[in-house]
């Protein structure tokens, strides 16, 4: 049993070492798989920020994950075919990954602002469902909008370009994603320890108290929601580059559910919880999938046991002083 800080460090170290081991054993797929873990962790961390610390259970984070993914796919496909974007934009898209990240973050923030502005009027289960409603609208739109492939999705064939690095090399791309993970972990740690973070946590506990000190909790929650959407959106952008492909399935409610399951599985309101959740989920999916055709049955069973007996998520299994 160890302290949380120590466990966090171990998690990062393991993630850091895996690609080298994979290289050593000539198993490049292990790197790809770990990249997926890292990307899903980023999406989970984004959700956990509002879900764990702000008590806002969004069942529509696939919206941001998907939009980040589609922004990336659309910009890249235009750049590859040198087609102009829409009829009024004199712009051919781009395959520069830095630029794509910027646009993804801006667009996801904007969408999160819109969704958040309307959704945050509600609370509790109503909030869960209204965020789902917005995500579903986008999902059905993406299926039936023919310009970018509809349900067939959009292939971009090669990853977007990062200065000085060949992103098609799995290890390079892995460390790009890993760096983003570190960046967001750092930023979130700073925010959570700042007065903003304290107010956000206070909103979860007692909104009236927040109001009484002259702060409008709506604004705090909206800013956090936008920030959370931007992080998840960036994860979506990376996911498109990982697969060199994007399709409406990243906007589906199952995707929202999967991100949420990672967060809860790992341990809500623990900064590194979603990472452990993602590791656990992917390992289960990979190993059970090889053992039995009915692997989802066993996955369900294991998750139920986890909920019943590891009450505060997997993180708590390793920790001495469980917070719950």
């Amino acid at each position: 049993m160890i302290k949380e800080e120590k466990l966090n460090l171990i998690i990062l170290l393991v993630l850091f070492v895996i690609p080298f081991l994979a290289y050593l054993f000539n198993e490049p797929y292990l790197t790809t798989l770990t990249t997926k873990i890292v990307i899903l962790s980023i999406a989970g961390i984004g959700l956990n920020f509002i879900l764990g610390y702000g008590g806002l259970v969004s069942f529509g984070h696939a919206a941001f994950f998907g939009i980040g993914g589609y922004v990336t796919g659309i910009l890249a496909s235009h750049a590859q075919n040198s087609e102009q974007m829409f009829f009024f934009l004199q712009f051919d898209g781009s395959n520069q990954i830095l630029f794509i990240w910027l646009i993804s973050i801006i667009i996801c923030s904007f969408i999160a602002l819109l969704i958040g502005y309307f959704s945050l009027r509600t609370s509790g289960v109503y909030f869960i469902m209204i965020t789902l409603a917005f995500a579903q609208m986008l999902y059905y739109f993406s299926i039936s909008w023919p310009a970018y492939g509809g349900e067939d999705g959009l292939s971009i064939y090669v990853r977007n370009v990062f200065p000085f690095f060949n992103t098609m090399n799995p290890i390079n791309f892995y460390f790009i994603c890993f760096t983003w993970l570190l960046i967001f972990l750092t930023i979130l740690k700073i925010i959570l320890n700042s007065s903003f973070g304290l107010v956000l946590k206070a909103c979860k506990e007692n909104e009236e108290r927040v109001k009484s000190i002259g702060i409008n909790p709506f604004n705090i929650k909206l800013i956090s929601f936008v920030f959370s959407g931007a992080i998840t959106g960036l994860a979506g952008s990376l996911y498109t580059d990982l697969n060199r492909f994007v399709s409406p399935s990243v906007l589906s409610w199952q995707m929202s559910g999967e991100i949420m399951v990672l967060v809860i599985l790992g341990g809500v309101a623990r900064l590194y919880g979603p990472i452990l959740g993602a590791v656990f989920y992917i390992i289960l999916e990979q190993t059970l999938g090889g053992v039995s055709e009915n692997w989802q049955f066993w996955l369900g069973l294991i998750i139920i046991l986890e909920v019943l007996y590891a009450r505060a998520g997997i993180m708590s299994l390793f920790l001495k002083d469980s917070k719950s």
Binding site: E27, Y29, L30, T32, L33, F245, S247
Partner: peptide
């Protein structure tokens, strides 16, 4: 799921 299919294809070609 298309994303799972892509990852399986990566695994089969790479590993």
């Amino acid at each position: 799921k298309p994303d799972i299919a892509v990852q399986l294809a990566d695994k089969m070609t790479q590993s």
